[in-house]
């Protein structure tokens, strides 16, 4: 096992980090070992978005993304925040979560969605978030939250 260990360097939520990884680790394996539990593996097949991580500005499924690919990259997770932003506040205000397991993924994907479509209609929201599953079924409130966040000034 140890002969395949490699050292990677990356920026994580604004800090420069190094880590010793195995080539078969994915991003969730890496992050949980760094005590970050916001990205969590659920479906493990790229379908549900619970493991969403922003890599160099684009959203990926951490469950399918090799940790080795983080070498030299800039990673951002739900823990990357200073207080609540407009999207997080809108999820709270509309009650867009129940157990909260899916919420980090939905928040990160909603930020991406609003960066690409500042004033999205229902169809755009549904298409963009189609790869995120909420087992509690808070979809109606989530769509409401996205629209509310779109209306509020960005922090």
């Amino acid at each position: 096992m140890s002969e395949t260990v490699r050292t990677i360097r990356f920026t994580l939520n604004g800090e420069t980090r190094t880590a010793q990884i195995e080539p078969h680790w994915n991003l969730v394996d890496l992050l949980t070992r760094l005590d970050l539990f916001g990205a969590r593996e659920s479906c493990a097949q790229g379908l549900c978005g619970c493991c969403t991580v922003i890599v160099d500005g684009t959203a990926v499924s951490g469950c399918l993304h090799l940790a080795a690919f983080a070498d030299g990259a800039t990673l951002s997770t739900i823990e990357d925040s200073h207080g609540l932003d407009a999207v997080q506040q809108a999820f709270i205000d509309t009650g867009a979560l129940q157990c909260g397991f899916c919420t980090p993924g939905f928040i990160l994907m909603t930020r991406q969605l609003l960066a690409a479509h500042p004033d999205p209609d229902d169809d755009t929201i549904r298409h963009y978030l189609a790869g995120n599953l909420c087992r509690c079924g808070a979809y109606a409130e989530i769509i409401e939250a996205v629209k509310l966040a779109a209306k509020r000034p960005k922090a």
Partner: peptide, 11 residues
């Protein structure tokens, strides 16, 4: 537009 999802298409 109807292929997989945003995160899959990104990579």
């Amino acid at each position: 537009r109807n292929h997989s999802n945003v995160r899959v298409r990104n990579v």
